[in-house]
Design a protein around this nucleic acid. Structure first.
Lengths: 337, 337
DNA sequence: TTGAAAGCGCTACCAA
DNA sequence: TTGGTAGCGCTTTCAA
């Protein structure tokens, strides 16, 4: 490996000088700059980022923690962070937190070991206190997709409840009168938030959601199919179905159609997340848009600001996003024909 | 920041001893181990990975270069590498190469600066020579999704041409006699490889693909729709359609159905890649499976082996994967009814 | 405009 | 079983 010493020696200057030209430091004559650069390319010199980080006490990295990379939703999250990292000429460190508190903590720890001072974390399993502690330790830590009041200024999150309400309102506006909901059985708070929002939205229009038409399953295509079968088996009528996420919604539509229901003519369906899938399905899915990539960018920008300036002023709600209804083809007005 | 010195001081031992307990080094009394560990947690000590990397001359990282993270295909690639990195207790460094040679090179350079010695690169824009050079410089560099004979032992790739052939054979087996193909207009070699394979497969069964039934467009849903419109506008008949990738195939199916053709009853469609999408579409897509995650794992394992052992014996084909036909619902026997 | 040298946090060698 | 210490590659004073 070629080091700064090698360059200095071959160029007949001191390492200090070489360092200066590498960092565009001040007070170096044009002549030496040219000469040193020449030698650097001759030798194929690459500065050692680790040594640099050690002495400067900054790593110029951005860390991101997500459950896994193979889920397109989380990949988009990481993608948003990556774009910002690149814009700031920082290297992206990626760790996965799987689906356990231990793994999430370990992922963060790994980042800290690398002296990573700008970190965007998607955590559903670590408890509030741990995250609060961590954020005391790391100025540039930002939590995404979760709101913790005590560290509101570190949170970039989506109002899931409001999403459920919006879905309910849309159905009501379309004239629907009987409603069903498919939710996820995962033990995180998003499902109940969305479900509650949906319920509240209905209730404020004087409708309600009966237990027989609320079905829980895995948040996957298959889960959507199973949950829909349960709904159908209940023998209760409904013309509007709100589903936890797009994958489940597509599974639901497929089971509805297999059972002779047309979407949206007989039953309207609203999904959640607006992942790629929703634009590829037939009918194209009406869904609540989750601007995850944009939120991730914002989270990364915030983390960098926090790590450098230290005080951004953000209100007590943190950075809250409200999901937007994207009307496509899976919802229609209720007709009694 | 707490350093090893702080721990040593507070524990009343030397830094050498602390270092030993951190690294599970030999010959330390149980008593000191316990005591030092105690102090470490009290102080919240985290070893500095950069300092460590500097002295040991190894970074314990794995680097991966992909065009972008928001494409699920590349996210899966990165996911495969990440799994291996985690298994080997290495941190993942991710750089994106966008879609230009410059950006690809820069992404690799960034990894090298971090002393990353295990790198999996997906590069479509850098030329062979640059990649060959780079692989001379970095023992643990592995190229994925591309075959370069001169560095065959560094390549993990998919035989696209064979995939085209397999698709053709499947259509022929099903009794089809008139064929169409939708390809991508991107200037990389995959499209022509798949197209040529398809042509060859047809020709070896004494069929052929006419120019009017070969349509090029962007490799997206929309591109698939447009390309299908062109096909239909040609007024040539076909009952079997091979499409460059799944996104285009889904676009194609949607346009076919909009024009009164049923899939697969009237027209059979085969896609390529077997991304998530293909299992969510209706009808579910018959497609050529691209085992990208598995290939990425293999590439990462190979890169680690290469970086450590130095000589893996691999044949002159490199590690070649052959795409497998996944029969789902978009293909059926040809009938004249 | 340049160079000498201290030191970032850590590991690993040599002594004790 | 432990400690002292050189040195990894680099930046950054301080002097020249």
């Amino acid at each position: 490996m070629t080091t700064i010493k090698d360059v200095a020696q071959k160029a007949g200057v001191s390492v200090a000088t070489v360092s200066r030209v590498v960092n565009n430091g001040p007070k170096v004559s044009k002549k030496t700059i040219a000469h040193v650069k020449q030698v650097m390319t001759e030798l194929g010199y690459t500065p050692n980022a680790n040594a640099r980080a050690l002495v400067t006490q900054k790593s110029s990295t951005v860390g991101v923690v997500i459950p896994e990379l193979t889920d397109p939703f989380f990949a988009s999250l990481a993608g948003g962070v990556e774009q910002v990292a690149r814009a700031y000429k920082r290297q992206l460190l990626l760790s996965t937190g799987q689906i356990s508190a231990d793994a999430e903590l370990k992922a963060i720890q790994l980042l800290i070991e690398r002296q990573c001072d700008v970190i965007v974390v998607h955590s559903k399993f670590l408890d509030d206190d741990t995250l609060i502690n961590l954020s005391q330790q790391i100025k540039g830590l930002v939590i995404i997709d979760r709101f913790i009041p005590a560290i509101a200024q570190r949170c970039v999150w989506l109002d899931n409840q409001e999403g459920g309400k919006t879905a309910a309102r849309h159905f009501v506006t379309l004239g629907h009168q009987s409603f069903a909901c498919i939710s996820s059985n995962y033990q995180i708070e998003d499902p109940s938030l969305r479900l509650n929002g949906f319920r509240q939205g209905l209730e404020s229009a004087n409708f309600n959601l009966i237990a027989e038409l609320t079905s829980f399953s895995e948040p996957t295509l298959r889960g959507g199919e199973l949950a829909t079968q349960k709904l159908l088996a209940s023998n209760h009528q409904f013309s509007a179905l709100f589903v936890y996420n797009d994958a489940m919604a597509i599974g639901a539509i497929s089971t509805l159609e297999d059972n002779g229901f047309r979407v949206p003519q007989d039953i309207s369906v609203i999904g959640f997340d607006d992942v790629l899938l929703s634009r590829y399905s037939r009918p194209k899915l009406t869904t609540m848009h989750y601007p995850i990539e944009q939120m991730a960018q914002q989270a990364a920008e915030l983390a960098i600001a926090l790590a450098t300036n230290s005080h951004e002023t953000i209100n007590s709600q943190g950075i809250k996003h409200v999901p937007r209804l994207v009307k496509r083809e899976s919802t229609a007005s209720y007709t009694t024909i």
